[in-house]
């Protein structure tokens, strides 16, 4: 299992060679509540670090999902589009949002590790 890093916008990224997998954190799903709609990017789309890449909607509101890393979209996770509630049940596992071919691996290193992210969440309650 590759190392997981975290963004201030509550996305997680894991890196496997040139391919990064991106999703939203458990903390994010707890803030959002019941997720009822997901839109993931099409393969081939290029995204910038911190650029809007996907959409997640709960019963309460719509939120953008940002890519914590630049690159080209390889795949969006269709299973969460078909069954958005899966994001609540397994946000940091099977319910990833998209895979991306990474342009610049050094961007990965600038993200927070688990301990720093947990601290960040504790210091910035919603």
């Amino acid at each position: 299992m590759s190392e997981k890093k975290f963004s201030k916008k509550h996305e997680w990224v894991s890196l496997d060679g040139e391919t990064a997998t991106v999703g939203i954190t458990k903390h994010a799903t707890e803030m959002l509540g019941d997720i009822v709609f997901v839109e993931v990017p099409e393969p081939g789309k290029s995204v910038e670090k911190d650029g809007q890449a996907a959409v997640v909607e709960s019963t309460k509101a719509a939120s953008d999902v940002y890519s914590p890393i630049s690159g080209e979209i390889l795949e969006g996770n269709k299973s969460i589009v078909d069954d958005p509630g899966n994001v609540n049940s397994d946000p940091e596992g099977a319910s990833w949002f998209f895979k991306i071919k990474v342009k610049d691996k050094s961007e990965f290193d600038t993200l927070m590790n688990k301990a720093d992210y947990d601290k960040f969440c504790a210091e910035n309650p919603s």
């Binding site: 509540g33 019941d34 009822v36 709960s58 019963t59 309460k60």
Partner: peptide, 10 residues
């Protein structure tokens, strides 16, 4: 209260 522990759908 906008919701409790179970969440809006439940």
């Amino acid at each position: 209260p906008i919701q409790y522990k179970d969440g809006i759908v439940k």
